[in-house]
Nucleic acid binder design. Structure first.
Lengths: 149, 149
DNA sequence: CCCTATTTAATTGTGTATAATTAAATAAAA
DNA sequence: TTTTATTTAATTATACACAATTAAATAGGG
């Protein structure tokens, strides 16, 4: 039983180190994203829109692992800020396409230097972070596949 | 500029792989924690209480990297479920101590097997996950120190 | 063609997160 | 001792997250 209790110690929880690190990263981004007027999840939406130009809500949800309960209100807030346009498909009225406004497109240049600024806070080498990212992407795939079943 | 745009691709974002993995892990825990009647953040609170018996809200916040705006309402919900007791310190009326009820203590035995069940979903070796945890703990420390300044 | 199943967003309700403010209590300085 | 600064929770307001449900539209089978 002692051995089992030991596995419940906070210090031994990989899940907690991921959970806490994720929130600390969001805090590092905060002052940088405040300059752009967006939150961290909104920044992720911009990343995929800068890459894809136009996306359905469903496709964005697949890329970001978020569902419509999260995306719909968030994208409406981004529409209010005139960062994105939401329009229903004519071919299939169930589908809503999201695209960038000029204002949304222009934020890309202001965001360019964010990755290196965040990198400088980590005290880690590029290689170490690259390795970490790859391990997490594999883990993410395993867990996501399991959660889909 | 192309090089800078490339760094904004979702696939190149370590931050996103941490963020998405964290949420997928929470989903893996969901059915296991439903049996105990708690959420994932509530489970983290139980982990530290099982280790420390009694804690102030401040101390719990330091351990979990959460502030009173998150903990106060969460601990009130846990009190409503009769998992914890909240009582103000007599020495310093600003301090609120949190301790476990019998019901809260007893959940420990039901939680014992959760870590190994989650482990089995990862498709990774113990060693690989241990290494991942250590890297993340170092990163967490760097980011937290930076966020405190 | 009609019925059923599926797909897709939106909505609703609950539970975190966090910044900013408030309020109470303690400690420290003048 | 009186004032000032600090500490600690609680409160408030905003923004995610996600499960579950709803509603509309499309697709597929008979």
């Amino acid at each position: 039983m002692e051995q089992l209790y030991k596995q419940l110690q906070l210090e031994n929880q990989l899940c907690f180190s991921i959970y806490a690190t994720s929130r600390e990263i969001t805090k590092v981004y905060k002052p940088l994203l405040d300059k752009l007027g967006v939150t961290y999840p909104q920044y992720l939406a911009l990343l995929v829109l800068w890459e894809h130009e136009t996306l359905s809500v469903k496709k964005m949800g697949e890329l970001l692992y978020l569902d419509s309960g999260t995306l719909t209100p968030m994208l409406k807030r981004m529409q209010d800020q005139e960062l994105v346009i939401r329009q229903r498909s004519h071919e299939d009225e169930r589908v809503v396409f999201i695209s960038l406004t000029e204002k949304g497109k222009n934020l890309r240049d202001k965001a360019c230097h964010i990755p290196e600024e965040v990198f400088s806070m980590t005290n880690k080498s590029q290689g170490e972070l690259e390795k970490l990212k790859e391990t997490l992407q594999e883990l993410l795939q395993s867990l996501h596949t399991y959660n889909q079943k």
